[in-house]
């Protein structure tokens, strides 16, 4: 069994940020050591990356968008795109009737190669 390192991308998601806030609170209350918190956060990286893989069949929402590509870069194996005047179409593929469209001025995409995650 291999245990590759995982991206820390999802720590910025609501669930990731909430987890780190909760861990901070536990450290401040001296309920856990910072090392344990670090391990938990690393576990979180692994679990959320695994669960969001398409083969897990859990994430069924799909997002398509169009807009003007304003900036793009590829540094350290991380793609970043900044898109302006974006129309986003949200689809829940398990419920075809649940579709929604959102317009936003600016949209930032940070993307990494999931297959190479173990090589990081």
């Amino acid at each position: 069994m291999s245990a590759p390192a995982y991206y820390e991308l999802y720590r910025r998601s609501t669930v990731g940020a909430t987890l780190t806030d909760a861990l901070d609170q536990l450290i401040s209350d001296e309920k856990i050591q910072p090392q344990l918190a670090m391990t938990i956060v690393t576990n979180f990286d692994r679990v959320i990356s695994e669960l969001l893989k398409p083969e897990q069949n859990i994430a069924k929402s799909k997002l398509t968008f169009k807009g003007d590509l304003s900036t793009y870069r590829f540094c350290d194996d991380v793609w970043t795109f900044i898109i302006k005047n974006v129309l986003i179409k949200l689809t829940d593929t398990s419920h075809s009737e649940l579709n929604d469209e959102v317009t936003v001025d600016k949209f930032k995409i940070v993307a990494c190669n999931s297959r190479k995650a173990g090589d990081v």
Binding site: E8, S28, P34, M38
Partner: peptide, 12 residues
């Protein structure tokens, strides 16, 4: 100030 540690090794 809060006696905490940095969790992230990278900023995206």
């Amino acid at each position: 100030v809060n006696g905490l540690v940095e969790f992230n090794s990278k900023n995206y």
